[in-house]
């Protein structure tokens, strides 16, 4: 059937009919130049604003002075990295990043799955739809807006949360001014914002389970709990593995937008993370080279982790991005 022959074969056979090399290149250009042109704007922007900054990383090995530029600034080798690993603040910042992001990763692993499983047991469809409408909403609000809201409701002077706790005789809690409470607040508010949205992918997987499986199990005498264990859970295991492995790749991202909008000098000791640290010393403190070195440290580790996690996701669950 000529009509349904894949376009690839058609084209490949056409190209093969022109053996001389120069002719072949001319044909290639003639056939594909519009495709190159369509890619051009994206390529130019990516080159300037993503690839040139990657070259700019060299200032991590310099003592960069803006008015001297990259060519004139002094080279200092690995001095900034040595400083990074001996400077106590920097070590604390790396530790904070790891502890906050690992708490987030663990909770993001559990809460959305449990929520999806519970929602899957809801039979009333209007109830299910309304719940979904409400829990997806916070995902779309920015941390500027939510930071403003949280600062207000968590205030110790009459914030609604502390007023609610006082009904049970609990003294006001310094959610955003005490380091340990700050970490807990950051982690919990992050879960609050995204658990619903993260559950979507599991709900999609649950909706795809063949109902005949449940019917068969029921006839065989399995109760609902047994059905969940033997049918529902195995059906979402592949997507669960993908989500978990991919989240491991972001272990150095503790959530700049969120922390930057919620922290204050009182909690720097326990709440300062790599990204906020880079911003403060780099852009506010104008230590361009040291900040770049810290950023490079993060980018390199992050790159390695993401590549590993994609490979694992591909290996275990056959996941690929395109």
């Amino acid at each position: 059937m000529a009509a349904t022959q894949p376009a690839e074969d058609l084209d490949a056979s056409l190209t093969r009919n022109f053996p001389p090399k120069r002719r072949r290149f001319a044909t290639y250009i003639q056939r594909t130049w519009p495709l190159h042109v369509l890619l051009l704007p994206a390529v130019i922007i990516a080159l300037i604003y993503s690839y040139v900054p990657m070259l700019g990383i060299v200032i991590a090995f310099q003592d960069y002075v803006p008015w001297l530029g990259i060519r004139e600034s002094e080279w200092v080798g690995l001095d900034h990295f040595r400083y990074l690993f001996t400077y106590p603040d920097a070590k604390q910042v790396i530790f904070n990043t790891l502890i906050i992001s690992s708490m987030k990763i663990v909770l993001h692993m559990i809460v959305p799955v449990v929520f999806a499983l519970l929602l899957n047991e809801v039979r009333l469809s209007w109830f299910k739809r309304s719940a979904q409408t409400l829990v997806y909403l916070p995902h779309f609000l920015s941390w500027v807006v939510l930071g403003g809201i949280f600062v207000d409701i968590l205030s110790i002077r009459g914030g609604i949360v502390n007023r609610f706790l006082s009904m049970f005789g609990i003294d006001p809690i310094f959610f955003l001014a005490n380091g340990d409470w700050f970490r807990a607040t950051i982690v919990l508010s992050d879960i609050w914002k995204d658990f619903g949205f993260s559950a979507i992918i599991f709900l999609a997987a649950l909706a795809g389970v063949n109902p005949a499986l449940y019917e068969a199990a029921e006839i065989d005498g399995a109760n609902r709990w047994k059905q969940v264990i033997h049918i529902t859970l195995p059906s979402i295991t592949p997507i669960f593995i993908v989500v978990v492995t991919l989240s491991l790749g972001r272990v150095l991202d503790a959530g700049f937008d969120q922390i930057f909008n919620m922290y204050n000098p009182l909690v720097y000791a326990k709440g300062d993370i790599i990204d906020t640290f880079v911003y403060r010393i780099g852009l506010l403190g104008a230590q361009f080279s040291f900040a770049t070195a810290v950023g490079l440290f993060k980018s390199v580790i992050g790159f390695i982790l993401i590549v590993i996690s994609y490979r694992m996701a591909y290996k275990w669950a056959n996941y690929r991005i395109f």
């Binding site: 990516a46 993503s50 990657m54 770049t292 950023g295 980018s299 992050g302």
Partner: peptide, 18 residues
């Protein structure tokens, strides 16, 4: 070329300088 952008970046300071 595009996927690499997603995995690696120059970081805040070099991007700002560019």
């Amino acid at each position: 070329f595009f996927v690499f952008m997603m995995l690696f970046n120059g970081g805040l300071i070099p991007t700002y300088l560019v």
